[in-house]
């Protein structure tokens, strides 16, 4: 069955009406997963609802407490926002890695999240930054942490008529930075074999006072590895602490073997990536301190 209907609501209430009648519908943000899915037969909506005419969904707003990224805002727009890349360089790294320039121009962090691929680049970076999902449904709004939003490979927590409106990232406190790294055989145009996003906070003495480490492509969903964060807390991010964090990351990983890599390889590499991402984040903090 082909797509029978294309609608482009201009407000959230119109969007809710558009999805309300039981017709198999798909939200369209950048389309870089949806349209491929339709082409390859994995998705088959009768109705496509374009979200990009709804101002809230493409807005990027920065206030004193949080950065709010509209669910359909393109990665390109986020990357060229005046505040987001400097506050969340790791998230920017992740968004920049989602496909080519052409893909980045269309894809959105919200779409990347909703598509819920185990290998999605933005999800570990969002989790590391403590991002929350603002969700609108027929009965009103709810908020969910990103790590709880993805429930399985290509499965998210949205009910059929619910809509992800925006991602809310608390602004980093002083002494905080993030980083994201992934491993792909090619430099670009590739799917992560493993990925690691970290956000750490260090006080003036160099002590780690907060940490979040999330890993991708090594489990059915991206994982927040609390044990890894605990290994770093209170440390000077010395080798012992980092080794412990890496060990925790590897212990948490439960990957599969597939065409993109073996389980053994992924477990090893996700540790390497976490360690390197920690080094990058620390370097960013030190640069900001100096």
């Amino acid at each position: 069955m082909a797509v029978q209907e294309f609608v482009s609501p201009t407000s959230l209430s119109e969007a809710q009406q558009a999805v309300g009648d039981g017709t198999a519908s798909s939200w369209l943000a950048g389309g870089t997963d949806l349209l491929v899915g339709i082409r390859l037969g994995a998705r088959d909506p009768a109705r496509v609802i374009d979200l990009k005419q709804i101002p809230e969904l493409t807005a990027i707003q920065v206030d004193e407490t949080a950065v709010r990224i509209g669910a359909a805002a393109s990665a390109f727009d986020v990357l060229h926002n005046s505040d987001v890349p400097s506050q969340f360089p790791g998230l920017a790294e992740a968004l920049n890695l989602i496909g080519s320039t052409q893909i980045t121009g269309r894809c959105s962090a919200g779409g990347n999240l909703c598509n819920a691929s185990p290998a999605a680049d933005s999800i570990p970076a969002l989790i590391a930054n403590g991002a929350k999902c603002r969700i609108l449904g027929p009965d009103g709004e709810r908020t969910l942490a990103v790590e709880d939003f993805v429930v399985g490979p290509n499965q998210n927590a949205l009910a059929s008529s619910e809509l992800l409106i925006e991602l809310i990232l608390p602004r980093p406190t002083p002494g905080t930075s993030d980083a994201y790294l992934r491993l792909t055989p090619r430099t670009e145009m590739d799917i992560a074999v493993a990925g690691a996003g970290v956000s750490i906070t260090m006080d003036e003495s160099g002590e780690c006072t907060a940490a979040r480490i999330a890993i991708g492509a090594v489990a059915p969903t991206a994982l927040l590895v609390e044990a890894a964060a605990e290994a770093l807390m209170g440390s000077q991010l010395d080798q012992t602490a980092i080794d412990a964090a890496v060990a925790a990351v590897r212990a948490a990983a439960r990957p599969i073997c597939d065409k993109r890599g073996t389980a053994e390889y992924r477990i090893h590499v996700v540790g390497v990536l976490a360690s390197r991402a920690l080094a990058n984040a620390r370097a960013r903090i030190k640069k900001a301190h100096s």
């Binding site: 294309f6 369209l28 950048g30 389309g31 870089t32 349209l35 491929v36 082409r39 496509v48 374009d50 393109s74 390109f76 080519s100 320039t101 052409q102 893909i103 121009g105 269309r106």
Partner: peptide, 9 residues
């Protein structure tokens, strides 16, 4: 904006 026209309706 640079896009792939096979991924735009």
């Amino acid at each position: 904006r640079l896009v792939c026209s096979c991924l735009v309706l």
